[in-house]
Structure formats: structure tokens, C-alpha cells
Design a protein around this nucleic acid. Structure first.
Length: 581
RNA sequence: GUUCCGGUAGCUCAGCUGGAUAGAGCAACGCCCUUCUAAGGCGUCGGUCAAGAGUUCGAAUCCCUUCCGGGACACCA
């Protein structure tokens, strides 16, 4: 158990012995003049037990006074209990976590969690709109892992929609002479002379044409249907396009440290669709309505309209809901899952509500498996609409990364970073800037996309965190080079030192809250707070040259613990730290 | 129309399971590099928490109303 929870348990045991049975929490005080931690539960307990809150506070204080973990206990106002932790206890705490930062984490009971995020579309360029899903999903996965869970991540590519028909149609138009488009094609394998560069042009062209030409659109729809139904040529072309496109998509995901265990897509769910329909039919859950096949998912207790799940269009084609339900069907067959997490734009919430209901109602998913939708807010431009480039399209992710990278490159300290490392280093800094800026706002609120926000390199930013973390590491390296040992934490010198220790103490609760709310912003806020206190400490003290050896050793141990914590949290956020910058 | 989510400093955002004096970054202004990386540190300026009413010992936080902005609402994904 983490130290902070040990403290909390002591306090809860005391309260229980005094007859107050309720969960009491301690939190860092916002009245530091009165104490470092505060307990606000006396007021709540007063209501339950019909007693004066100050008397309850006194009861608790009386016992806390006897425990040498705590000191300077006082009661203020309506019944606030202010508590400080004794230096002795804090020193012990740092020594408990100094060699393994995992000792400052409360592991949870392991669950098997599948995370569905990313949502890239085959044959389409990864653009800034894909950023949040990747950053948030990846960070949630890493957080879950850190807390002891088993995870499977799936990019769940969008590869079954109209863009398939559009792209194949455009290819057909451009390469009429390929053997596969001839009448007596014998099904032999063929080379598709298409590059990723071609692909970047093919979809936008086709999309544009479909908007202007209804015949073109209809033909694309027809081909989409044929691909979904395993047409020998079209399906093969689409598979080739997918393979090519996946490689491109993976390159960009790699750049932003987003990794998937499964590179599956909507098309991979098609093999379950027949079985799924049969199953739903056997349960009498689906029926025809206006030529389409639907499933009712509304419930009597609903106070708003929940439309039915549309599983097959009147023209026979399948939809988003079909592939999502079939995907769940497949996942439940293949894996033993406790939870499935979806991270997409919050505008898809209703869709997932419908799909989840369909999954539970049909018992594809039993009530022991939790389906969770953790949507993120929409990325808007300054005008309140989705961010666009000057030409009107959505900005490709690659362009944004390179934009930031150029800014970072200008600021690299060439006296420190070797020339051949400049490229790699500016990439890491750019990614840090991008990811941190994206993870800082609360998950579910919309936010304003401004390239300037991501290229901010000063203040509360990714580069600030990297810069500071590198300085910590550099300091520890200097100590190693000078053969200065730092084994034990011995002295808390002043308020700044103590503030660092207290901030470290709260880490387990921060991780817990982030996990509960499925929002990384608490972690992003926390690492900034810890880092800025450390930077204050850094500027106040000269460490290596200090003559007081015990204090110097303590400071180095403290530096190491903050460094380890930062590395842990950067890793959760999917941010890599360079050696120098 | 139904319904969901927002409105907090000039800008971008935290804080919302009620707690004491509402925070941060940017921007503006001032100070600190012969000394472990100044992408840093310190300070100043900046607020009717959209408005009104209510619950409470206590409200940015909970309830209600209004105004403003955005989203979703069966053959797109």
C-alpha cells in the first residue's frame, strides 16, 4: 500500500475506533499556513451522527496526536482538521520509494481490458482530427498497464465504408488496362502499380467527383457493396490498398508513440456478420422495417429517444452499427475480456449507447463485461469549427508534426547536442509538445485547435517537462562522474524540499483519479506541478558543490525520485525523453 | 422540436463526488546567468466564476429558470 493510503488508513482506523464509520480522506491543504494536509470529514460526520463537528474533530485529533507520523494537528473553522506529516515519517517514505518508484503506486486487481482507439481510415491521410483518439487512447492503455491491468489495443481501422468503393472506382478509372479489369480475368494475382503518394491523391479526387457526379457516387456505392460481399477483383484491390495504407498509417502512429497490438478493421468483422444475424434472428431481436433490418434498443426507463440499431440498409449494405456489433461479437469469442474501452469523438456517444445496448440485450456481452465509452471533445478551430488548412482541408498530422519540429530545431542548444542528434532530438521535443498540449485539457471538453498552441515551447509545455527532466538526469550523471554516492534520504532541509516530498506523496491518488475518470489531464497537471516545484528547488540550490554531505546526498536522492516519477509519467503520456536538448 | 455538453483573468485552459483566501500557462511589465542546461527561477498586473433565484453552517461546484455557444437525434462513419 502506498504511503498516502497508509496515512489515510491510520486516520480511518482512529475514526472507526471512535465510532465514526465512514470513509475519511486526506488531501493537500489549500491553507498551507494552517497545515500541509486537511481532513474535511468532521462536518459530514456531524450530519450522520448528529454531533457538533468540532467535537468530532477533537475526538480524531486526540488520537492523531499520539501517532508520530503526524504533527502540528489543529482544528479550525467549522471543523477542519489540519495535519502535517512529521519529517521522520516523510524521510522514511522517500527511502521506501527511492529504489523502485513502483512502491509509490497502488496496483489494482488485474483486469483484461481491450482498448479501441485510433480509428484511422484506410486510404485517407491521418489528420489532426485523429490526434486525440491516439493520444488519449494510448495514454489510457499505458495508465491501465501501469496500474497492473492486462491490455489489448486495437486500431480498428475504418476500412468498410464508402471510401472503399470510391478508391477502387477511381483506381479502376485510372488503370483501365490492368488485366484484372478485363472481362475474362482468371483471378490470378496482379501487381497494383500504386504508391502511397498516389493514394494521397486518389481518395480526395474520388471524394470530390462523387459530390459532383451522382452516377459516380452510385457506382462507388455499388462497388462498396461488392467489396463487402467478397467480389473477387474489387476485394483484392482493396486489400492491396489497405496493406499499403496501413504501412503509411503505422509510420505516423509510430512517430507519436502510439502502438497497437491488433491492426484489425471493420472488414475483419465481416466474417462474423452472417453468424451474428443468425444469432439475433434466433433470439427474435431483429426485424424488417422500411426494407432495412433493425433492432430495438430503447428501454422503458428512457427519458429520451433512443433510435433502433440499424443493422442492414434497404439496399443490403452494412453499416457502422453492424461492424461495431460484429466486432464485439468477434472479440468476445476470441478473448476473455473484463472491459472494452472506446475512445472516439464524443459526438458518437449515441451510436455507442445503441451498440452497447444491442450487445447486452442480445447477450453477446454478459453483464460481467463492461463496455465503456470514453469520448473526447471535438477539436475546433478559432472560429468554433473544425480546424482547416488554408486550402480548406483538414491539416494532415504529418504536416503539424513537421511544423512543430522546425520550431524545436531552432532552439536546440548546439553546444550541448551533437549535430547528428539534432534531427532525432527535435523530433522527440516536437512530439512531447504535441502530446502534452493535447492531453492537458479535460478529456470530454471541446477544445480550440491552434497550431500555435502546439508549437508553444515555454511554460506549461512538453518541452518544459523534457528540459527539466533532462537537467535532473544530467545532475545525477554529474554526481556519478564525480563518484558522489547518494544512497539514503536523510534531511528535509526547508519548505521547498518538503513541498516536493508532499507532492510525491499524492501520486497514487492522482493516478487513481485519472483512471477513474479516464482522463489524463490530472496526470498532466500533476507532472507540471511536481516539475515546477523541483525547478524552484533547482534554482535555489547548488547541489554538486555542496559541502554538507548528508544534505547533498539527500538532495540527490530527492532528484532521483522526482526523475523516476517524471519518467514514469512521461511514459504514461507516451512521451519519450531525449538525453540532451 | 427532443436531448446532451459547455460559458471561470485580455487569450488558452484547470478546478465541479460542496469546504477555508478561485489556480496555471501565454500575453504585458520588472528582476536574476564568472557557478550542476536561462526551453529556467522570482515578482507585478489581471476575476460581479454568463445572469437570477434556491438548498446548505458553507456554492465556481448541487437544484431550478433565463440568455449565449456547440453537438446528437434510423439507411454516413
Amino acid at each position: 500500500m502506498s504511503k498516502i493510503n497508509e496515512y489515510e488508513k491510520i486516520i480511518n482506523d482512529i475514526a472507526k475506533n471512535k465510532g465514526y464509520d465512514s470513509h475519511i480522506t486526506i488531501s493537500t491543504s489549500n491553507r498551507r499556513d494552517l497545515g500541509e494536509f486537511q481532513i474535511n470529514d468532521a462536518m459530514t460526520l456531524a450530519k450522520i451522527y448528529h454531533k457538533n463537528p468540532v467535537d468530532i474533530a477533537k475526538d480524531i485529533k486526540e488520537e492523531l496526536d499520539k501517532d508520530n507520523n503526524f504533527e502540528n494537528i489543529n482544528i479550525a473553522g467549522a471543523g477542519f482538521i489540519n495535519v502535517s506529516i512529521s519529517n521522520g515519517s516523510l524521510i522514511k517514505y522517500i527511502n521506501e520509494i527511492k529504489s523502485d518508484i513502483n512502491n509509490n503506486i497502488d496496483k489494482m486487481n488485474p483486469k483484461n481490458i481491450l482498448l479501441d482507439y485510433g480509428g484511422a481510415n484506410v486510404a485517407k491521410t491521418l489528420h489532426v482530427g485523429h490526434l486525440r483518439s491516439a493520444n488519449i487512447g494510448e495514454a489510457l492503455k499505458r495508465l491501465a498497464k501501469t496500474l497492473g491491468h492486462n491490455t489489448i489495443s486495437d486500431v480498428h481501422l475504418g476500412d468498410s465504408g464508402l471510401q472503399a468503393g470510391l478508391v477502387v472506382l477511381e483506381i479502376k478509372n485510372r488503370y483501365k488496362d490492368l488485366p484484372c479489369f478485363k472481362e475474362n480475368y482468371n483471378g490470378e494475382d496482379f501487381n497494383l502499380p500504386i504508391t502511397i503518394e498516389d493514394l494521397k491523391d486518389i481518395y480526395p479526387t474520388a471524394s470530390q467527383k462523387s459530390k459532383e457526379d451522382e452516377n459516380y457516387l452510385n457506382e462507388a456505392r455499388q462497388i462498396t457493396y461488392q467489396i463487402q460481399n467478397n467480389d473477387i477483383v474489387y476485394t483484392k484491390i482493396w486489400e492491396k490498398v489497405s496493406t499499403l495504407s496501413k504501412r503509411d498509417i503505422k509510420n505516423i502512429y509510430d512517430r507519436i508513440n502510439t502502438n497497437f497490438d491488433l491492426w484489425e478493421g471493420e472488414m475483419d468483422s465481416f466474417k462474423y456478420i452472417k453468424e451474428l444475424f443468425k444469432y439475433l434472428e434466433s433470439k427474435n431481436l431483429i426485424y424488417e422495417s422500411d426494407g432495412a433490418i433493425i433492432m430495438d434498443v430503447k428501454e422503458d426507463t428512457d427519458d429520451k429517444e433512443i433510435p433502433p440499431l440499424l443493422l442492414r440498409k434497404s439496399d443490403g449494405a452494412y453499416l457502422y452499427a453492424t461492424t461495431d456489433l460484429a466486432t464485439i461479437y468477434g472479440r468476445m469469442k476470441r478473448f476473455k475480456l473484463d472491459e472494452i474501452w472506446y475512445t472516439t469523438d464524443i459526438r458518437q456517444e449515441l451510436h455507442f449507447t445503441q451498440v452497447f445496448r444491442g450487445a447486452y440485450k442480445s447477450k453477446i456481452v454478459d453483464e460481467n463485461t463492461k463496455l465503456g465509452f470514453y469520448g473526447f471533445g471535438t477539436m475546433n478551430g478559432k472560429d468554433g469549427k473544425p480546424f482547416k488548412t488554408r486550402s480548406g482541408g483538414v491539416m494532415p498530422l504529418e504536416m503539424l508534426i513537421n511544423l512543430i519540429k522546425d520550431e524545436c530545431k531552432k532552439r536546440i542548444n548546439r553546444n550541448i547536442v551533437e549535430e547528428e542528434k539534432v534531427e532525432e532530438t527535435s523530433e522527440l521535443i516536437a512530439i512531447a509538445a504535441l502530446k502534452y498540449a493535447d492531453l492537458l485539457p479535460f478529456r470530454a471538453t471541446d477544445y480550440c485547435f491552434d497550431p500555435a498552441k502546439f508549437s508553444d515551447l515555454d511554460g506549461k509545455t512538453g518541452p518544459y517537462l523534457l528540459y527539466s527532466t533532462i537537467r535532473m538526469k544530467s545532475l545525477l550523471n554529474k554526481a556519478d562522474e564525480s563518484n558522489i554516492k547518494y544512497n539514503d534520504y536523510k534531511i528535509i532541509n526547508n519548505e521547498t524540499d518538503k513541498e516536493i516530498v508532499i507532492t510525491l506523496l499524492t501520486l497514487p491518488n492522482v493516478l487513481k483519479r485519472a483512471y477513474d475518470s479516464k482522463s489524463i489531464n490530472e496526470i498532466a497537471e500533476y507532472i507540471y506541478k511536481l516539475t515546477s516545484i523541483y525547478n524552484k528547488f533547482y534554482s535555489e540550490n547548488k547541489i554538486i558543490t555542496l559541502e554538507n554531505e548528508d544534505l547533498r546526498e539527500s538532495w540527490l536522492v530527492l532528484t532521483k525520485v522526482v526523475y523516476d516519477t517524471n519518467m514514469l509519467l512521461l511514459n504514461i503520456m507516451g512521451i519519450k525523453c531525449p538525453e540532451k536538448m
